[in-house]
Every structure is written in structure tokens, then in C-alpha cells.
Design a protein around this nucleic acid. Structure first.
Lengths: 235, 235
DNA sequence: AGGAATTTGTGCGTATGTATC
DNA sequence: AGATACATACGCACAAATTCC
């Protein structure tokens, strides 16, 4: 069995299971077949299957109960990485959408944290909505040498990025800084906080496994319209 | 080999290694012996040792490099659970201390998130400092039936809680909500933001594996004096 | 109530692949 | 290129928790 240059079996299996859950083939609360049967059907050893199941349990998608079985936990979305911090309405939830306001390649601002090797960077400004109402503006910087051209189309949904983030292959470190900052003057009128007024603020820096490329983002939002929520564990 | 009613070997070993790192016997950057030798010295199989090392790697205390070795990563503290969110000075770091202002058993406020079964709760108000300067005030609620008596002494450092949190045996879920809120009117004068003014705000709800007991906390802090920082990954 | 069957958890040993030195 | 070290994968035996009869 040549397995060279392919992903490990336990990753392949875990990805396959995640897709099945995301597609709704495995409903919330559903109980999986026992590990021995499942391993036989998937043509792999129980140990390898258990490693794959551990990945899902770690993402909070599976509840493993000794003596009972493995149960699907749909819960707070399958978007494991993005779900770590999620903008929500105060009452919880809300359908998130993003509208790109501006995409330009320009010199990096001096007050930004140092990141990457290039002197230029892609600045992306977006309007974030929950259930249609504007709740935040955000600014994202990508290292200039990361892409030669960048369009609003690329940002909507990159399949490559989807798999990359999902597989957790490149995002090696994330650092969030949370505090209060003035609302930026480029915030559109739809954002009803006056520019310069204090608003909640989050900045994120993430590095890939190579250590080189870094992203920098800012988000401002109104506490009474939306909050950031992070969840940990399998509760 | 009777192992009944004891912790699994891989947990025992991981705890032992964590203690050695915390005690400084294993310095930052130090390279561990190879797994085969280490397993022989500790009198266990390589597979079990690997499981223990995986625990440390998951906590960010160990960097495992294929073909090279296992390296200690002291980094951002050994307090895995608490270290998830850490108050820091804008320039980074700062020695954190806490001063208990008030501990009282009282009826739960109506505006608080529902938690626990009791109608009363312990309210703890603390002053947080970094390098001596006040940077935040925080309010913590414990379910009333969690303890019959509670003193400031108990809060300083509970060994039981230390091991419980360290072992990750009970904290099953954590939820953080971040936003902007007014500075509370009980903030002491040392906190130089006027009460009622907006400040950064974080509330945390955590549940144990039983699902019953929940803690609720709030923190206000001045962005220019301190920020919350969270770190993920092994960067 | 209690014991058997079921199912996941732990632990061991071994062989092979792959990255690093 | 060779040696070293971690990663993956398989299989087995027994323990512990749950479920079912």
C-alpha cells in the first residue's frame, strides 16, 4: 500500500466524517456504528479509526461515551476554525454576511504590527451584517507577496482556503488582542456609532506553519447590536 | 497490574512532566530524550508515552518535531486553562496580581445569565493589577450551593481547584462574550475611568462535566492600560 | 437487583513511513 | 547517503462504563 505524499488515513477519514455531518447525512444526536464494525467497513484498524474520531471529538463534533457509543454533536457550526470567534447578536446567533467595501494594494501603515516580509500589503475593508443589520466594520491586511492580484470575488469563498483552514494544515498560531478603540473615520453611515467614539476592538494576528505570512485584522462593533462569542469544550 | 481507581498512566506521566517543566527542571527549549529511551526509563510502552506527550503538545508545552525531537516550550505560562485569556500590558506581559474587594452571598441579579440551580450566589469583586498598577475590576459569581462558606483566603489559591483545572477533569465548556459596557459604579477611584463611561467588557460562563455548576464573571479594563490576549497554536 | 452483553478506554508490541540531522 | 527520531498504522488483550435482559 503506497501511501506516499497523501494525507494520513485518520485525517482522510475524519474529513470524510466531517463532510457527512456538514451535509446533514449524520444528524445531530445520531449514534455511529460501533468502532469495530465501522473500522471493518472503512477497511482500517480500530486504532486508526479511533484517532480519526478523536479529531472530531476535539472539534466538538462528536461526543464519545465509554460503554455507550459515539454521538454526533452538530451544535455551533462545523466551521471549526472560524467558529472559534464568532460575531453574534446579543440574543445569540444571527445569519452572518460580509460585504467587501474596498480592496487595495498599498504600503503597510506604520502603526500596524510588523508582519510578513513585503513592504506592501493588501488592505480589505468589509461591512459585516447579522440578519441584515450592520453590526461591524473590519479591516484585514494580507502580506503583499501573498498574491499578485486580488479581487472581491476571491474573497467571497476560496475553496482552497476552506480546505486549508479546515484541515488545520497552515494556521499554526493565532493571537487575539481585545480592547477598546475609536470607531474609524471610514465607517459608513450605516454604522450608527459616530467616528471617534469608543467601540469594542479586536485585532488578530495569525501565522502559518512556515512562520512567514501573517494576517492582520481589526474589527469594531457595537456591544448592543452584536458581541463576539468564543466557545471551548464539548459542552 | 491492578490499575483500578487510579488515573490512567498517560495522564500520570503528562502531569509529572508538566510539574517538571513548571518547576524549571526542564528549561525552555530543552530537548527531551528520544521516545524509546524515555519509555524504557519510565517503564511504559512507546505508544503510552506518545499519548502523554500529545497531551503536553496540546497544551502548548511541547513542540514535537518529526525527525528531530521533542522540545520544551515554556512560553505563556503553565496554567493551561487560565492562560487561554490573559490580561497583559499593551507592550505585553506584566506581573498579574488580584486583590479581593468583597465576598458576599446574595440573591442572583435578574440580568445575569441563568446558571446553576441555587437562587443565591457568591459575588466576588476583585481589583486586578499588572506590575502594581490597577488595570481592571472584575466580578465573579459562583453558584450558591457550591460552597457553604467562602473566605478571601480560599480564593487566593485552592489546591483542589489547581489540580482540578490543571487536569482538565471538570471544566468541560467555556463561553466568552466580548463587547463594550459601562464602567460599574463600584469601581474604586484607583480605576481612573469615570463610572458609566464605556470600557471593554468580557463575560465568561463555564460548565463542568456534570453540566450543573456554572461560573459567571465580568471584567472591565482600560484599553490603554491593558488588553486581553489569547493565543492559540504552537507558534 | 443483578449479571451478562455491548461499547469505548487504556496499554502493549511491532512494523513501516517520513522528516531531520 | 546513512543514522536518528518522530508519525502512522495494525492487532491484541484487558479495564471500565453503559445498557439490556
Amino acid at each position: 500500500m503506497p501511501t506516499s505524499s497523501t494525507l494520513p488515513k485518520y485525517i482522510q477519514v475524519s474529513e470524510r466524517l466531517i463532510r457527512e455531518i456538514a451535509a446533514g447525512h449524520l444528524a445531530d444526536g445520531a449514534r455511529l456504528p460501533n468502532e469495530r464494525d465501522m473500522a471493518r467497513d472503512l477497511n482500517l484498524s480500530v486504532g486508526t479509526l479511533r484517532k480519526a474520531l478523536a479529531v472530531l471529538a476535539d472539534k466538538g463534533l462528536l461526543s464519545r461515551v465509554q460503554g455507550s457509543g459515539n454521538y454526533v454533536r452538530q451544535r455551533a457550526g462545523v466551521t471549526s476554525v472560524y467558529g472559534f470567534f464568532r460575531l453574534e447578536l446579543p440574543r445569540g446567533g444571527g445569519l452572518p454576511t460580509a460585504q467587501v467595501l474596498d480592496v487595495t494594494l498599498r504600503d503597510k501603515p506604520g502603526d500596524a504590527p510588523a508582519f510578513g516580509t513585503a513592504t506592501t500589503g493588501w488592505r480589505i475593508r468589509r461591512l459585516r451584517r447579522l440578519d441584515g443589520t450592520v453590526v461591524a466594520v473590519e479591516e484585514i491586511w494580507l502580506d503583499g507577496d501573498r498574491a499578485t492580484t486580488l479581487t472581491a470575488q476571491d474573497l467571497s469563498e476560496s475553496l482552497y482556503q476552506y480546505y486549508r483552514d479546515r484541515l488545520g494544515l497552515t494556521i499554526a498560531a493565532v493571537e487575539d488582542r481585545l480592547g477598546v478603540a475609536p470607531v474609524p473615520d471610514w465607517a459608513p453611515a450605516a454604522f450608527d456609532l459616530a467616528p471617534g467614539k469608543l467601540a469594542a476592538h479586536i485585532s488578530r494576528v495569525s501565522r502559518d506553519s512556515a512562520g512567514a505570512r501573517v494576517e492582520f485584522s481589526r474589527t469594531w462593533f457595537d456591544y448592543h447590536k452584536a458581541r463576539y462569542v468564543s466557545r471551548m469544550g464539548r459542552g
